[in-house]
């Protein structure tokens, strides 16, 4: 453990925060909940001269349901808020499940979805749900805002498309065009305060009895969250029988690039990809069928 000295500012407006980011560039670190940053500072991984706390930017917090059935999630929304939000559980169940799985109750009361996405760990649990829901991320810098698809946001471990002078200011999940559902499945060595060994997140949209679109995202089996392209391809237009879901889950093993480490071997991870993807697809389908019957989308 080491003491790193830094200065601290807590701006109250987005303009002020963006100006500070532009002024201090690489010397500054933005902090939301701090559950990653403070660990990184203590272990010497990061040594910022200035910590810019975003906690008082209240407009960046909370979940807003859109009239069309989509969701706008503020990046400062905590994992605890996401996990217990009725509208997130309804419209993006995989995201509520993943957020409810992060860390411990204490960590979930501090950690934010924005921090989880921007830190871009291969095991970041909220990234796959945001990706399968085809979210767009709004980035704000001094020159204005731009949008990036969530699937393109994370480039490498710890590296995203965000520039040093930009902040993530909104996460937008569009309304699906039909009855849809999603689910998140993960395995960890113990149930709390653990790092995901492998996760699989599935999103399905139905057209009558058939799958109109499927999206699968695998976590902790590559440097970034990986799309389960082989499984998605098999499901498009298919009759979603249990055998078909199992076949698609098995096909996703080819999408993983698992490695051996102390949490599990590559073989074990590949096995988990199949098992967890099958479970995630099964539950996502159940959600979509409920929506179809209830006339909800």
């Amino acid at each position: 453990m080491q003491t790193v000295r830094f200065d601290f500012v807590e701006p109250t407006t987005l303009d002020e925060a963006v100006a500070l980011m532009a002024e201090h560039g690489h010397e500054a670190a933005a902090v939301a909940g701090g559950t990653d940053l403070l660990r990184d500072i203590r272990t010497g991984k990061r040594q910022p001269a200035l910590v810019i706390s975003l906690a008082r930017l209240h407009t960046l917090s909370g979940v807003r349901p859109n009239d069309d059935g989509g969701l706008t999630v503020g990046p400062l929304t905590t994992m605890a808020e996401l996990a217990r939000s009725a509208v997130v559980r309804e419209r993006a169940p995989a995201l509520a499940e993943a957020a409810g799985h992060v860390g411990s109750p204490q960590v979930r009361n501090r950690a934010t979805i924005g921090g989880n996405l921007c830190n871009a760990r291969p095991c970041a649990d909220t990234a796959p749900p945001v990706i399968v829901h085809s979210a767009t991320l709004e980035l704000t810098g001094k020159g204005g805002t731009r949008e990036v698809a969530a699937k393109d946001f994370i480039i490498n471990p710890g590296q995203t498309q965000i520039e040093t002078n930009e902040l993530l200011t909104a996460i937008r999940l569009p309304a699906p065009g039909g009855p849809a559902g999603s689910a998140f499945e993960t395995l960890t060595n113990r149930k709390a305060v653990e790092i995901t060994i492998t996760s699989s997140t599935a999103w399905l949209m139905l057209d009558g009895d058939r799958v109109a679109q499927a999206r699968i995202c695998l976590g902790s089996v590559g440097p970034t969250p990986l799309p389960g392209l082989h499984g998605e391809g098999l499901l498009r237009g298919a009759d979603p029988t249990p055998d078909k879901l199992a076949e698609a889950a098995k096909a996703c093993v080819a999408d993983a690039s698992s490695i051996d480490d102390f949490r599990g071997s590559a073989d074990f991870r590949n096995h988990l990809v199949e098992v967890l993807t099958r479970r995630a697809l099964t539950r996502a389908l159940a959600w979509a069928l409920t929506r179809g019957r209830g006339g909800l989308s």
């Binding site: 807590e10 909940g33 701090g34 403070l38 660990r39 272990t43 706390s53 860390g103 501090r110």
Partner: peptide, 27 residues
């Protein structure tokens, strides 16, 4: 642990449990 794993430093911040080792005092 000083890293948010053990929970020994838990306090309530506005009524919610948090790891006080992972909260900057100024926050």
């Amino acid at each position: 642990c000083g890293e948010g794993d053990c929970g020994a430093c838990t306090v309530l911040l506005d009524g919610e449990p948090v790891n006080s080792c992972l909260v900057l005092a100024l926050q």
